[in-house]
Design a protein around this nucleic acid. Structure first.
Length: 831
RNA sequence: GCCGGAGUGGCGGAACUGGCAUACGCGAUGGACUCAAAAUCCAUUGCCCUUCGGGGCGUGCGGGUUCGAAUCCCGCCUCCGGCACCA
């Protein structure tokens, strides 16, 4: 370690190993639950959580960034006197491991556990301050036992149900997908075009919570506005009316949802979705059966993307039937058309071509009447008019403003029993069953006598059996495991078959943050009193890609648990921080492009401290940033500078000398002020997640120390200040470079930095003694003067007026206005 | 199409409530050290003009408010993200 000139070389690996061993041996980051030894009632709690990783291969720089941000915050909170819980786990179930198993024959458990080991090793090598006593993994029976338990609680409450529904099917992965997992009509995982199928599936009734999921945004402390907006759009609440049209020939009522009850008199046709269950009945006896059936079949064969393409021409087939418009008794023709979605509203709609673009297009194509009922458009025959105006051709409502008429028509409908106000959501129930192996088994059996029966709690977990063949065949590979599938009915003891579908992995991750709080509980998923102490998560940190799915599912579970009396909070995550993605050469990193940066290699080359500090420094953390190899060098150089400075200061100054009382002036005063400025700045910036400027502030402090150090060594007060400034730099960089921070701090103070309270700035040193007065003439800077902070306004003005540079610009003109901003500038306005 | 977000040097970016635009880092240039190089340290670095005092222009574009605008208002342009036949 000795370079021969009395200076030791910065050897990150040796330093990092040393501190990691101490933290591991002393279990430094373990935190007790209330009532356990070491728990201190007087401390506030802080739950700092990064999204748990999906273990695949080894961690990449995105993980490094995620956990570096979270760890910085965890350290900051601890040193500010909080009990900080900072746990780690693995989202271990899921398709990639299973697809890999199909390809290689390696059991998904084996591949996953090898990967978990790689992650664990990296987290240790990075020096992340994790409470390892709380580690969990979603594929452990001790974890998924409680996933199943929670499923059963939801089942009991009718929040988990089985139903046949048109679902989105991925033909490659041979499984259904949740609505949220279909991106642009393609499977989120494999990219293949998604098909529609009618299947019996398990759902969670998240729609029952739609209103609360919207309303409770108000309870959040700090979430990015755009994430809230995305969720709000996803839930897609629409207010409108339900209106019943009836087909008198067959005696069937067809309620429809509309957001425009004011245009009811303009309905000139009626459309059903191709999946509508009444189509067969409607077509029967009209002579159009074949044509209708052919259309339905064609629609079913189409991919979701093809069908959803907005640009394509409208298609449809007349049904040869009519329904009656309740407001005017008019009989209008019925059609089946694929622009109507079965999943939204009632799967049927009233078409008002004059005032809706889609209906307009369809009407033009099929030669249906386009009847204007809201005046104000140019020519509704050519272009639909969607704006406001007085009603026309609307019977008793003629001449009324359409918005006014809206309310009156809804009232009329409800008085007549023909409908009323209604709300609809874009949000669909959460389809959670998957026809795949590597997931949490659904704890249900089917008995010939008793039908669908829940597995009793004491028989949980329903363990995932071993299989030889993971290939999906349209049903779960579990269906082939005869001695697992065939079981006894818990009610009658008779023969029964197990549910062979497994759960979507998003179920596993919808509650994991609660299991961390009480990970060894064998009676319950968590003890409510313990959870109520730690919850909510104070800071949740992760990628924006989870802005909708995971976050909404976790919110839903939290609300359901609150309704069961197991939680007091309504929202799991008080503050959310979404980090931006690190790119390489401006492009997303991917192994196929060959532009990935290995976190492991970076840590091996520069040490964890450099790698961690760099990912926090390269850009504002919420924004993405491009990985620049020279930038890593720059941060490394800074850490080396701090290291060398500390070595020199430790050697040339005396720890006992100086104290804090000696009078400081000149350079010592300047450096002392800078140190307090840095404390203030870093404290503020960490709170604001401005980690890059926090690190920049420490860089400034170190730069100033370098600039001033040679003038400080000879004087005891100066030497003490230099020592203080260097130790302060170590203390402030500790959240980002914990090993170096610990090492330098200890060498200068003999103390462990993480046991040292976060420094407080001396307010009296933050106030400036003098400042640079900017003098402007007509808003243009003409001079700058260094003046005392307490200089009175009239003196500032006088200084400004007499500045030679200013006089040059005043020359003969008349000063019409003088503006003085204390502590900043003087502006003379001349004419 | 609808809903968000962002445009600042050669590059990543900074600027708390309108008050020195470009902190910090990268890159570049010059110098010191060295036989030399690397490393390190020091200096310079928005563009244009300059008699070296300084002057002009500069935060996507065009207007406006103000003593003063990167910041506020109006109208555009571009890029990124989300949703997208949701009645």
């Amino acid at each position: 370690m000795d370079a021969g000139d009395g200076q030791s070389i910065y050897d990150p690996h040796a330093i990092e190993r040393r501190w990691q061993e101490i933290w591991e041996r002393e279990r430094t980051w373990e935190v007790p639950n209330p009532g356990e030894p070491g728990f201190d009632d007087s401390k506030p709690k802080s739950y700092v959580l990064e999204m748990l990783p999906y273990p695949s291969g080894e961690p990449h720089v995105g993980h490094l960034k995620n956990y570096s941000i979270g760890d910085a915050l965890a350290h900051f909170r601890r040193r500010n006197g909080h009990h900080v819980i900072h746990p780690m786990g693995y989202d271990a179930f899921g398709l990639p491991a299973e697809n890999n198993a199909i390809k290689t024959g390696v059991h998904p458990r084996e591949a996953t556990e090898a990967s978990i080991e790689a992650y664990r090793e990296q987290f240790r090598a990075w020096g992340v301050s994790i409470d390892w006593s709380r580690e969990i993994s979603s594929h452990w029976p001790s974890y998924y036992r409680w996933t199943q338990w929670l499923f059963l609680r939801l089942y009991e409450r009718g929040l988990a149900y089985r139903a046949e529904a048109p679902v989105q099917w991925c033909p490659v992965d041979q499984t259904v997908l949740a609505n949220e997992q279909v991106i642009d009509g393609r499977c989120e995982r494999c990219g293949s075009l998604v098909e529609s199928r009618d299947l019996e599936q398990w759902f969670f009734k998240i729609t029952e919570y739609a209103d609360r999921l919207l309303a409770d945004f108000d309870l959040l402390e700090s979430w990015p506005e755009h994430v809230i907006t995305m969720q709000r759009n996803w839930i897609g609440r629409s207010e409108g009316a339900e209106v019943t049209f009836s087909c008198e020939e067959l005696g069937i009522d067809f309620p429809v949802f509309t957001t425009r009850p004011d245009t009811l008199f303009g309905a000139t046709f009626f459309v059903l979705a191709p999946e509508h269950p009444d189509l067969e009945r409607l077509a029967a006896g009209t002579g159009r059966e074949d044509e209708v059936r052919a259309y339905i079949d064609a629609a079913a064969r189409e991919s979701v993307e093809e069908r959803g393409d907005e640009g394509r021409e409208k298609t449809g087939v007349p049904l040869g039937r009519t329904v009656t418009n309740p407001v005017n008794g008019e009989r209008i023709p019925m059609f089946v058309a694929d622009y109507v979605l079965m999943e939204y509203g009632t799967g049927a709609l009233m078409a008002v071509p004059a005032h809706d673009a889609r209906d307009h297009e369809f009407a033009r194509r099929f030669g249906i009447e386009i009847r204007e009922v809201v005046a104000g458009g140019e020519d509704v025959q050519a272009e639909p008019y969607v704006g406001d105006g007085p009603l026309v051709a609307s019977g008793p409502f003629d001449g009324k403003d359409n918005r006014e008429a809206y309310a009156e028509i809804v009232e009329w409908l409800s008085a007549e029993g023909k409908g009323g106000a209604a709300v609809n959501y874009r949000l669909r129930d959460w389809l959670l069953s998957r026809q795949r192996y590597w997931g949490c088994p659904i704890p249900i059996v089917y008995c010939e006598r008793d039908g669908m029966v829940a597995v009793p709690d004491e028989q949980l977990p329903v363990e995932l059996p071993e299989v030889e063949d993971y290939a999906p065949r349209g049903q779960s590979p579990l269906a082939a495991v005869a001695d697992w599938v065939n079981t006894e009915c818990p009610e009658c003891g008779g023969p029964a078959r197990r549910e062979t579908d497994t759960m979507d992995t998003f179920v596993d991750s919808a509650w994991y943050f609660l299991r961390y709080l009480d990970p060894h509980n064998e009676e319950l998923p968590f003890e409510p009193s313990v959870a109520n102490f730690w919850m909510p998560v104070d800071n949740y940190i992760g990628g924006v890609e989870h802005a909708i799915l995971h976050l909404m599912y976790a919110r839903f579970f939290t609300k359901a648990l609150a309704d069961m009396g197991m939680l007091e909070v309504q929202e799991p995550f008080a503050s959310l921080f979404t980090q931006g993605m690190i790119t390489m050469g401006g492009a997303k990193m991917s192994s196929s492009k060959g532009n990935t940066v290995s976190a492991v290699a970076t840590v091996e080359r520069y040490g964890a401290d450099t790698a961690r500090a760099y990912v926090c420094f390269l850009a504002p953390p919420e924004r993405g940033g491009d990985w620049i190899p020279e930038g890593v060098e720059g941060v490394h150089r800074f850490l080396v500078r701090l290291w060398r400075l500390a070595g020199e200061v430790a050697e040339r100054t005396d720890a006992s000398a100086g104290g804090g009382q000696a009078a400081r002036d000149g350079a010592a005063r300047e450096l002392e002020r800078k140190a307090h400025w840095a404390i203030d700045k870093v404290t503020h910036d960490i709170r604001e997640f401005q980690l890059h400027t926090a690190i920049a502030a420490v860089m400034e402090l170190v730069n100033d120390a370098y600039r001033l150090k040679d003038s400080l060594y000879d004087d005891p007060a100066g030497a003490a200040t230099l020592r203080f400034a260097t130790a302060t730099a170590a203390s402030l960089i500790f959240p980002f470079a914990p090993h170096l921070g610990s090492e330098v701090y200890e060498s200068l103070t003999g103390d462990r930095v993480w046991e040292t309270p976060w420094p407080q700035p001396d307010q009296s040193l933050l106030a400036r003694e003098e400042f640079t007065l900017v003098v402007q003439v007509n808003g243009k800077r003409r001079d700058q003067l260094t003046v005392g902070a307490d200089t009175p306004e009239d003196e500032l003005l006088e200084l400004a007026r007499t500045s030679p540079n200013v006089i040059r610009h005043l020359d003969g003109k008349q000063v019409v206005k003088e503006i003085v901003v204390p502590g900043k500038l003087v502006n003379l306005v001349v004419r």
